[in-house]
């Protein structure tokens, strides 16, 4: 299983000299396994990903965690959507009263976007993941759960040939709980992340910032580390960096955490463009 980061930033794209190393594109991760191409979220990073996809790919699966703008803003610029010979399957959450199609149409339609879903050249198929708990794309097995974030939001666990990864880019498991790790079955998202080779998890805030943003749906870096430890993951990529966090600030935040505790997993300071090859898959 190969995992490539195309966008690691949260909330708002943040290009600029101060974010050159970790990157300024919003959430997008490419997963290649067993001949399949999965794209996790469609932030601005998806545009550059689209430029690299082979023209005869045949099928692409886009797995959206939720429909906040930073996770779908690049979708209309994803090249395979305009290939008549390509199947594009978009998976994502419906809400309690609206289908995924209707929710996506709110963005992919005027006045917000000049192109409508029905005008796309590809063979577009939409799938609502909320009623599902698991599904497969070829030999790739995916589990999905609703997680703690404003609005219908899911996380994904992807497994193939013995390799596993979990994607929880927007997640606030500590919301309203002083000791949210105390009881395993009461930790949101824990079963998605249990024992995976690679966890990509929300770490938008510093510890000092988090109290000001309780309820916004994001975690602090220490909270992400705690969650990863509780889940027993092998590697953690802190993700969804706040747009105001420069490369230097991120370096400092990571240095502080690595210097202050022993971690039972590898903490990877992953930047946009980083590639991970997971054993198996």
């Amino acid at each position: 299983m190969n995992v490539t980061l195309w966008g690691t930033r949260g909330s708002l794209a943040a290009p600029g000299p101060e974010t050159m190393r970790y990157g300024g594109n919003t959430s997008c991760v490419e997963v290649r396994a067993a001949g399949r191409l999965l794209v996790l979220d469609a932030g601005t990073g998806i545009r550059r990903l689209g430029d690299t996809i082979e023209r005869d790919v045949g099928r692409v699966d886009v797995l959206l965690t939720h429909l906040h703008m930073d996770h779908i803003q690049g979708l209309g610029f994803f090249e395979p959507l305009f290939w008549p010979d390509c199947e594009v399957h978009v998976w994502g959450p419906s809400s309690t009263t609206m289908s995924l199609h209707d929710r996506l149409t709110r963005y992919l339609s005027p006045p917000l976007f000049p192109v409508r879903l029905r005008d796309l050249a590809c063979n577009l198929q939409l799938h609502d993941v909320v009623p599902l708990r698991s599904f497969s794309i070829g030999e790739v097995e995916i589990q999905t759960r609703l997680v703690c974030h404003p609005g219908p939001t899911v996380g994904y666990r992807i497994e193939c040939g013995g390799a596993s990864m979990t994607y929880l880019p927007d997640h606030e498991p500590a919301l309203g709980a002083e000791d949210y790790l105390g009881e395993h079955d009461w930790i949101p998202g824990i079963d998605l992340a249990e024992g995976v080779d690679l966890l990509i998890h929300d770490a938008q805030w510093s510890a000092e910032e988090y109290p000001r943003y309780v309820g916004w749906g994001h975690s602090s870096l220490p909270q992400a580390l705690d969650f990863a430890a509780a889940a027993g993951v092998k590697k953690l990529i802190p993700f969804h960096h706040d747009p105001t966090h420069s490369d230097e600030m991120l370096d400092r935040l990571f240095d502080e955490q690595e210097g202050s505790r022993e971690l039972p997993f590898e903490l990877v300071r992953a930047a946009e463009g980083a590639v991970f090859r997971l054993p198996g898959g």
Binding site: R145, L146, L175, G176, D185, W186, P188
Partner: peptide, 15 residues
């Protein structure tokens, strides 16, 4: 097994 997020939020509110 692990509980749904709706039950988790209800429990936290009740607390």
């Amino acid at each position: 097994g692990p509980h749904e997020v709706e039950l988790i939020l209800m429990r936290r509110l009740a607390g």
